[in-house]
Structures are given as structure tokens and as C-alpha cells.
Design a protein around this nucleic acid. Sequence first.
RNA 1: GGACCCGUAGAUCAGCUGGAUAGAUCGUCAGAUUCCGAAUCUGAAGGCCGGAGGUUCGAAUCCUCUCGGGUCCA
Length: 595
Amino acid sequence: MSDCLFQRYRHHVLAAVRAMLPEVSEETLARVEVTPTRDPSHGDMATNAALLLAKVARRKPADIATDLVAALEKVEGVAGVAAAGPGFVNITLVPDVLRSALPAVLKAGENYGDSQSGAGVRVNVEYVSANPTGPMHVGHCRGAVVGDALANLMAKAGFAVTKEFYINDAGAQVKALAWAVYWRYLQALGTTVTEEAFDALTPTGLQYRGEYLIPVGEALVAQYGDNLAESGANPAPELTWLDTVRDFAVAQMLLAIKEDLAALGVHQNVFTSEAQVLRDGVTDAAISTLEKQGLLYEGVLEPPKGKLPDDWEEREQLLFRSTQFGDDVDRPMRKSDGTNTYFANDIGYHADKVARGAQMMVDVWGADHGGYVKRMKAAVRAVTNDAVPLEVVLCQIVHILRDGQPVKMSKRAGTFVTLRDLIDEVGKNAVRFTMLTRKSDAQMEFDLDLVVAQKRDNPVFYVQYAHARCRSVLRAAQEDGSYGATTPDVLAGVPMGCLDSDAEMALVRRMAEWPRLVEAAALAREPHRVAFYLADLAGDFHALWNRGRDDASLRFLQPDAPDATRARLALVAATATVIRSGLAVMGVEPVEEMR
RNA sequence: GGACCCGUAGAUCAGCUGGAUAGAUCGUCAGAUUCCGAAUCUGAAGGCCGGAGGUUCGAAUCCUCUCGGGUCCA
């Protein structure tokens, strides 16, 4: 049984509708909503049932609404029902029913809002998946936070979530990494070869010249001495060292990435290697699955219209018929050198996720991969026979601002480029919260000054401040001692009848919405809704707090009225609990006091 | 040339998968408050939801076209 008030009364509405119109399809019933009202004068919740049923029943919405009113008036806990507007039915609840949200919160603790709507479906959420060629930079940050929060959110909504990181360790870029590390290795050995000479020697030219590889080269010396080089610290043939150096380098980079993720509070359960998936034959198996379905062919792509790449040459290659699944053109599976494209290996990787039990996949990508979505969905549909859906959440670019001016990412200028620098400057919590204050498909400005400002317009501060105020009240009550114990169990049993002011009831209503919000946000794959909900909740709480400024009798602790105080303490404790519940989804730690 | 994302108050953004009079913060204006529950508060003004068609009981939301901005395209 769900503890969600809106679900509970939706069932009553559905029962009333079924009794009235037995012939209504389940499909129509599924669209019946019971939602919070925006305007308190409309009661506590409203349903659109009459509007939806008008066509099926061939009656006016207002007439159906009238009948529904009569049926719903008899439901337990309903104080009043009224038809309104074009055919809405507004329901006003007995205040005690609303207040029952408080003991529900206090008993459930941070688990309040947990839902079964995900029905235990095994969903694989993949995010970050940065190339293991260097430390994480700020560009990775949004995807990391959004992915992590989305995974938490879906878990709270009742999905069985796997948090996954995909290691792109089979492509040309890790080979280039190996060469770059080998160069640092030779340097550590004191080579006389110049950087220019080594650059010329490297197949694709020396990339990844960043200083972060110097310690990796040194570590290589510590482990292998000069065994990977010719005498005199000269380069040895690629064959003799490439695999060793590449594996070593990738492992080191991955370690660094995991440290960065840990600093951000991101801890994925599964790290899957592209190279391993290849070695296991999963990729080949996936490709032959497509082959058997007749979805692969040798063909020639037309050159892109508009600007033509300089090195364009017409050539025959293995193509996937993604156009059959709504893509714009068929997509190549093999490069000119005969190796797999990233796309081909990604197909294998997604097949691997399915083989490991995923019933649903969500990938969180940067906006620069937007052009990749259609083909990947097409391939997943083909390779899984449409059984395992893939959804892609795209995260748009983040612009970092300081004093309202864009921060140029430049090592030379001393401005930061790495994720770690960002975390060091403003803190993990501010980074995470702020990254969730926009829907992910909108571009975002990240203002370094604002996110640490202790001002009303900084939602991080505003929400944390509300929590700190709650905790402060509870501490004071505890120290005073005359209000009895302030543990959740005790407060859950307190009579709440005296909570009846507008501000108090607004807060109660807001908390009653939390389970519903979790479900809706999870369904929409939109973790940012949690941040906005918490800002609203904090707003309700601050408003209540402010009443006590003008009128001391509205303060939470009333020595002359211990019963009322206990009820208010229950309200405060519940508020803190719901804030923590939301922050937990976002991966933000609540603070006990502001300093 | 094409694909994807965005366009909502002066600014920054929400808008709960199509619902009632489109919301919040900042800024502006008008009040309150030498308080310590003030790291302010109350209230007001402010809108062609980029534009034009369409779908239906009903559109910021869905469809088509179009204009801006951003990403990307073996």
C-alpha cells in the first residue's frame, strides 16, 4: 500500500468512475489524474476524470463531474467535493488526513517517498564514461551528477538500479595515451631523444602532452626499470611494450578518474571495459545477430551535403541499416583500416548490458553526442528485438562564470580546467546541487560566486539553511528538556490537531506531495525536479519561521503550550526528514548548522 | 545541406508528459524593521509563453512551417 495521499484518493476516484461507467477502458482510466491544486481555494486535490470521460460517456463534463461529486462525498476522509471550472472535481480533505502525512514521514525517515512504481525493473544507468586518457574536467561534471542523481531517483522509485561506467579502452585514443606515457617513461629514464623527434616517431603524433602523465611515466620506471626501453633510454619497438604500457596507463587513469568521482560523491557499481567486451566475443556476437537479421551490408555512403570534408573519398564499407529504425542515413560499422567503429563496439557493449540482465537502459551523454542517439537506439532495438529499451538523457553545456564573466579554461592563465579544481573551490555539495538546478537539456551557467553565496537566490544555501534551522529548533527543544523526547518515534505519536494555520498546512501539503514527485520525476527521468521541490519546501518552511518574527506566539517552542510545541516539533522534524530524503537523492549532505 | 537541444516578466529560470486566473528568485517601486528567530520581512507593478497556422472540450506543453541562439554530422 502506497503511502501517497494522491495515489490513495486516485483509487477512490477510479472506483467511483468504474461504478458509474463500467464500460470505460483501462486505457482511459490510466489517464485519470489526482493532482495537487495550485490554488488552495480549490481544495487539496483535483481530478480531471470528468473531462476525460466526457467523450466516452457522451455526456457533458459538468454532468459527469456532478455525479462524481456525489460519489466522492461518501469517501472516508473527504471533507468536501465540488465541481469547478470546465469539469474539474476538487476534493477537500479532512485536515487530519493531511496531517497524517507527518507521522508517515517520521516513521519512514529518509525512506519517505520510496515508491514501488518501478516494480523492481532492472535498469542500467550509465554515466560519466570519460575516456581514460586524463583527469576529469568540468565538462564531465554535469553528466556525472545528473546520472548519479537519476540513478538514485529511480532506485527510490522502485527500480533495481545498476550504476555503470563504460571504459573506452579499445580505441585509437588509448593507443595514443600509451605512446604519450611511453614518452614520459623514456624521460624518466633520462632519454636524449627530443620531444620533436619522439613526436615524429609516434604513429599519430604525440598527443596528451599534459604534465599529469609525468608521474605515470615515473611509476612505470618504478615497476619495470628500463626493461621497456632500448639501452640508453631509447625507444624500443612498439610490439615489445605497447600492451604493457597501455594497460598500465589505462589502469592509472582509471584510478585517477575514480578518485575524482569519489570527491564528487559518485560511486558506480560496475565498470565495464570496451576491450574486455571485445575479448569476450560479445561484440562479434552482436554484430552477427545484426548480420542474421539482414541489417548489415557492404555499401557506399553519400558524402554529406553542404561542406564536404577535405579528405572525403568514396569507399565501400560495412553499414548498418539504421534507416529502417528512423535514422537519417545508414551507419558505418567498420573503419577504413578494417577495425570496428566506436558505434560497432557500443552495440556490443549494450548487448553486454542486456546479457548481464538489464531490462531497461538509460545512458547519460553530453550534448556533443546528440547526433549519436538515433543510431544507438536503432541498434539497440535491432539487437534486443525491441525487448530492452534504451533511453538517452543529454546534458547540455555548462558555462562557468566568475563575477558574471565567462571563465576561460586555460592552464596557462591559471584558471582551472579539472573537475577537482571545481570541487576544491566551491565544495562537492554546491557543485552537485547546482548542477541539478536546470533541466539537463537546457544550457546552464554555473556562477562560482553565486553557488557559495549565503543569499536567498542561492538555492543550495536556501535549502541547507532550512534544514539547519529545523535542526536548530530540535536541538533547542532537546536541551530545554521540558517538551519530552524529540525522537521521530515519539513525535509521530503526538496529537497534531493544533497545526491549523495556513502556513503550517501549506508545509504539510508540500510534504504530502513528495512521494508523488518522486514517481513523476523518476518517470520523466528528471532529477532536477527534486532540487526545485526542495527549494519550494524550504520556502514554505522559511515562511512559517518568519511568522514567528512578527508574532512570538507563532514560534515553534512555546513554554506555556507544551502540547502545541510537540506538534510543531513533529512538523519541524518531518520537514528536516523530507529535506534529507531529497538531498539524499541529489547526493548532497545536509548540514546541521550554518557557520 | 541535414539532425538534435533551447527560446516563457527587465535578468536568470520553473511550469508536475494537454488542464482552471502561466509561477519563483533577482532587479524595480511602496511600506515594515537597531531587531538578534534579521546571514531581513510584507505588498505591488511587470507577460503576444519568439512568430504563423493546425489538432480538440482545452495548447507554453502535441503536429507543420518559420525566425533567432547553441551543439553536432564517415
